[in-house]
């Protein structure tokens, strides 16, 4: 099964593998969300959405619906 950013637990890390969908906004890439980069789930907002991430030192929040389109390799 594919693992995505949406599957991370708080404090867990992963390495971004690829995007499952072409609709990933360019802005997200520009903010450092690129394949090969480390991603950490910092915090989940109340009601489970959005997700607060630390991608290679860049702190940003995205909605769950975007997060499920970003595949990762989990770092145990």
């Amino acid at each position: 099964m594919k693992v995505t950013i949406a599957d991370l637990k708080r404090g867990q890390h992963g390495i971004i593998k690829e995007f499952t969908d072409d609709s990933i906004p360019l802005k997200l890439l520009e903010m450092g969300c690129l394949p090969g980069n480390d991603v950490e789930l910092v915090q989940i907002a109340p009601f489970k959405d959005p997700l607060y991430l630390n991608i290679n030192g860049s702190h940003l929040a995205i909605r769950r619906e975007t997060a499920i389109k970003i595949e990762i390799d989990l770092i145990e």
């Binding site: 906004p25 903010m31 959005p50 702190h59 940003l60 929040a61 995205i62 909605r63």
Partner: peptide, 11 residues
């Protein structure tokens, strides 16, 4: 609309 949402969380 292509709904998406990205926000920077500054220090």
């Amino acid at each position: 609309s292509k709904s998406y949402f990205v926000i920077e969380m500054p220090d």
